[in-house]
Design a protein around this nucleic acid. Structure first.
Length: 918
RNA sequence: GCCUUGGUGGUGGAAUUGGUAGACACGCGGGACUUAAAAUCCCGUGGGCAGCAAUGUCCGUGCGGGUUCAAGUCCCGCCCGAGGUACCA
């Protein structure tokens, strides 16, 4: 009987649903294992074949772990807040909640057809009030916390106000936006409003002025890619840099812990390195330069204190506070014009256009080492957001300073013996110092240390660690996101009482900003709390996705984000699978968020994701037809050079193995109904290219179509067979037949042509046992190494061998079925029940490879002379090295090659190779 | 520029981490079954040379060197592709 995958898929998907086969509960009697897939944003386009790649891998691993006796938590949900639904809502008036719900239903439908073992009773959606209650709750906790550097921990803000009341801000070592100093008396004398303003400087969730792209005409903040040449892309209205009060999260406070935590994680080195670069720790010195004839001191940060004698000018960031203060009256007009010009450019434009620009302030600073006077300039190559917003410029040893000095004709003093700075700067940190006063004769690393000591001893500055990681801006002027649990009294933010959470997203008449230019929530009726106005912004996308893994552990808990019991059992994620695109965003925010909850005592683990696998992207493989210009004739790919043609994308779904289905093409579009073809070998061959999967390239392949044509198990196995999990690769169906053929072979091993189960209870032959156990060993090792493509090969080899041996023994086929079940659960379940089992195969014990069946009595081994392989010899496995040597040397073959000489050396690697040097 | 990757047949990719390079699959060629097709099964398939043949032999993992009895794998110097990232002082 034929392998009827359609009936099998449908039968068991229904069975799993009705029997709640994949429901899990905490079970202290079993070890736990938590497998998490990055949850999807349910887009209107539905799933394409690239999406399930990671999910299939996660599902195979989950099922594998279940067979091994683990209690596996393998949930799924939806990252439901997002921009596309809101844009769609603005255009059509359709409520984002409605479209999101539709999309989720489509996703669920598609996912169900692939046969995943998700526990759907634990499903979460970030837009559910029951879910975002805890997003708001965490935010409120961050608002009520500060970060104590001494204890390396978030602490309640009340603790800080207590300290302020007793000793003021003196001597505290806490994370803050700006170093403040006040006494206890001064603190106690402040009004409530003043105190609240000061606390924002310390809160982990805080309001602060940040630079944003503001478009007055549209009344909204724009992202960098929505702005071009100072104008909004939509409408062409002017955009300016504006300081705006925005919510931020003090992620930077956790920089060191985020860095240190990486060492404990089982992530790829490349991903850890990406995070290290993102955090960007740099050790250096902060020091002060006095300004000539002024009380000002310019504070700078440098990692190259050793180059201090090469400072020939100073540069201030245009946005820094110093910039306006140090401008002398005679330079005022020029400087103002420059600052105005800079203000009009977005950050993106500044990056794209690397022209050297700047303006002299008229002020001079004094080098604290040499006492020399150097001019102070303003330039936009210095960023206000990093370090102190001011630098000492050493053109000889910094390429950016070099370009600036060359452009404005400033002096360049080389400091390293023998370096050539006539064409470019010498940035390398090596060599011996010269022209450097007290540092002369030292190597660069020595000089860095010596200079730092000098700075400290003479009170010029201090050693400091800087991080590139910036606080996360947390406000969005949008509708479709979590509302903040925040109201304003006397202009100051306060949080909504915990008992009144969640603050539900209100209804609005339209999803656009209000006429006042305020965010869409301004349109909501009665948007107040206790008579006070509520916050109008909503939270960004990463708010809901930062701690979602926790909520799966206890999804319906109404009184805590997760109960101590549930978290105590499930702990953190053992295996997390998702794309690399989240390497710096989601994976940094999640770790930050989790560390904060850890400090609160809500979670037991400091890191959320122990092991992480990045699945590669599946790209599209587009097909082309070639139309002869000015005609409706199409020429096959290999003949196209004989004509003048236009390349046209053709829907990949009407092309099979690059051969065009010409009838389907004619009916694809009315334009081609009368198409004529110039064929090669009677076929029309299409050209192809690898591109991103997109509607416009007509290369989107839906999993549904593959499932329809070949069944879910073929899709699952083929996606794994396509290549290494972590590698990006184009979707190409040309090999899918091979995988499908394999599943049919498996079916035929069990079932006779007439359709009856054809399995015998006889004792298996040694060869059959060997085939099985070799597969068990290989497949198990491959799953553990996430090498699923080679595991599929191992299945094929085993099946070919069993088929060749005409094996129909129950004692072989039964363990084989369990082995196959993670990859092809539908087929495995069908065969398992056919073999007489009543329970789902999900609970079956995983087979164990026994070496006993793998052992051979002898092995063949190549023998080489002077590195050249000459013959192969068969030897017993248990022979010791000495006997092997004697046996080999006694053979006729060896005597022939040695030609009477005695061997200089014999190298024997047991069971592998014998190498004889004559 | 910097960081991270990768480069193996006509194609996707294997190679126990230094031990018979090309597993497995696709494609292609040949054959069996069939009135025929589909399906299925069997054989061949990196390249050159020699041979009727079994087979032998040389060359082959981006390029050039090196270490080693032995290199796709390790070391040095290049070339090319992919991804990430950037006036971060």
């Amino acid at each position: 009987m034929e392998y009827n995958f359609k009936a099998i898929d449908a039968k068991w998907q229904q069975y799993w649903m009705e029997n709640r086969t994949y429901r899990v509960t905490e079970d202290a009697g079993k070890p736990k294992y938590y497998v998490l897939d990055m949850f999807p944003y349910p887009s209107g386009a539905g799933l394409h074949v690239g999406h399930p790649l990671g999910y299939i891998a996660g599902d195979i691993y989950s099922r594998f772990k279940r067979h091994q006796g683990f209690n596996v938590l393998h949930p799924m949900g939806y990252d439901a807040y997002g921009l596309p639904a809101e844009q769609y809502a603005i255009q059509t008036g359709q409520h984002p909640a409605v479209t999101t719900e539709q999309n989720i239903r489509r996703y669920r439908d598609q996912l169900d057809k692939i046969g995943f073992s998700f526990d759907w009773e634990r499903e979460i959606r970030t837009c559910d009030p029951g879910y975002y209650k805890w997003t708001q709750w965490a935010f409120a906790k961050m608002f009520h916390s500060y970060y104590c550097h001494d204890r390396q921990q978030a602490r309640p803000i009340a603790e800080l106000t207590g300290i302020f009341g007793q000793q003021g801000a003196k001597g505290i070592n806490v994370a803050c936006t700006e170093e403040l100093s006040f006494t206890a008396g001064e603190w106690n004398a402040k009004t409530e409003r003043e105190q609240q303003e000061i606390l924002l400087n310390y809160r982990i969730a805080y309001l602060a002025d940040t630079m944003v792209n503001w478009c007055p005409a549209l009344g909204t903040v724009l992202a960098n890619d929505e702005v071009s040449e100072g104008l909004s892309v939509r409408g062409g209205h002017p955009v300016e840099q504006k300081r705006m009060r925005q919510w931020s999260l003090r992620v930077s406070a956790y920089a060191q812990r985020l860095l240190d935590g990486l060492d404990t994680l089982d992530w790829t080195d490349s991903l850890k390195e990406t995070q290290r670069n993102w955090i960007g720790r740099s050790e250096g010195a902060e020091m002060e330069f006095k300004v000539k004839d002024s009380a000002f001191r310019i504070q700078i940060f440098t990692t190259r204190a050793d180059t201090i004698y090469g400072v020939t000018f100073m540069v201030l960031a245009p946005e820094s506070d110093y910039a306006t203060m140090l401008v002398k009256p005679e330079h005022r007009a020029e400087a103002d014009a420059y600052l105005e010009a800079v203000k009009r450019r977005t950050e993106r434009e500044r990056m794209a256009d690397r022209r050297v620009t700047g303006v002299f302030t008229g002020s001079y600073a004094i080098n604290p080492f040499s006492g020399e006077e150097v001019p102070v300039w303003i330039s936009d190559y210095v960023l206000a957001g990093y370090g102190t917003g001011a630098i000492m410029a050493v053109p000889a040893h910094d390429s950016r300073d070099y370009a600036f000095a060359k452009h404005f004709g400033l002096p360049i003093i080389p400091l390293i013996e023998g370096c050539d700075v006539s064409e470019e700067s010498f940035d390398a940190r090596e060599g011996v110092m010269t022209n450097s006063g007290i540092l002369n004769g030292l190597t660069v690393p020595e000089a860095i240390r010596r200079a730092r000591d000098y700075i400290r001893e003479n009170g010029i500055g201090r050693v400091k660690v800087n991080y590139r990681l910036r606080d996360a801006i947390f406000s969005r002027q949008r509708y479709w996101g979590e509302p903040f649990p925040v109201y304003y009294r006397d202009g100051m933010p306060y949080t909504v009482d915990e008992a009144d959470l969640p603050v539900e997203l209100p209804e609005v008449d339209r999803f656009l900003p209000a006429e006042t230019g305020e965010p869409p929530l301004r349109r909501a009726k009665d948007w107040t709390y206790k008579g006070y106005p509520l916050e109008l912004c909503t939270m960004p996308g990463f708010a809901g996705s930062s701690a979602y893994y926790l909520r799966y552990e206890d999804p319906r808990n109404g009184s805590a984000p997760v109960s101590p019991e549930a978290n105590g059992y499930w702990r953190n994620v053992d295996l997390y699978i998702g794309g690399t695109e989240h390497a710096t965003g989601h994976l940094v925010y999640s770790r930050f968020w989790n560390k904060f909850l850890f400090d609160l005592g809500v979670v037991r683990d400091d890191e959320p994701f122990k092991k992480l696998i990045n699945q590669g992207m599946i790209q599209g493989r587009s097909n082309f037809v070639y139309r002869i210009k000015g005609t409706n004739r199409f020429v096959s790919c290999n003949l196209k050079d004989r004509y003048d043609t236009t390349e046209i994308h053709v829907d990949v779904n009407i092309v099979h193995n690059d051969v065009l289905d010409m009838e389907a093409f004619k009916s694809w579009s009315p334009d081609y109904a009368s198409a004529e073809f110039i064929l090669e070998d009677g076929r029309y061959i299409c050209g192809w290219a690898v591109e991103k999967m997109s509607k416009s390239a007509y290369n989107v392949v839906n999993p549904d179509m593959i499932v329809e044509q070949y069944g879910a198990d073929t899709l699952r196995m083929y996606e794994m067979f396509l290549g290494p999990l972590e590698q990006s690769k184009p979707w190409d169906t040309s090999g899918i037949e091979g995988v499908h053929r394999f599943l049919r072979k498996v079916w035929n091993l069990f079932v006779s042509r007439e359709g009856s189960l054809d399995v015998s209870d006889g004792a298996p032959a040694p060869q059959e046992l060997k085939s099985l156990h070799r597969a068990v060993k290989k497949v198990t090792a491959d799953i553990e190494n996430f090498s699923f493509n080679t595991a599929v090969s191992a299945f094929m080899i085993c099946t070919n061998e069993l088929q060749e041996q005409k094996c129909n023994k129950r004692r072989i086929l039964e363990p084989f079925t369990v082995l196959l079940s993670p990859f092809a659960p539908h087929l495995a379940e069908e065969l398992w029940h056919a073999l007489g089992h009543d329970e789902s195969i999900t609970g079956a014990a995983y087979p164990v490879a026994s070496e006993q069946y793998l052992l051979e009595s002898s092995f063949t081994c190549p023998v080489s002379f002077n590195g050249k392989t000459r013959f192969t010899i068969e030897l017993p496995v248990d022979m010791d090295a000495e006997t092997i040597e004697a046996t080999v040397l006694a053979t006729e073959g060896a005597r022939k090659w040695m030609d009477g000489k005695t061997p200089k050396k014999v190298i024997i690697i047991p069971k592998k190779i014998i190498n004889i040097v004559i």
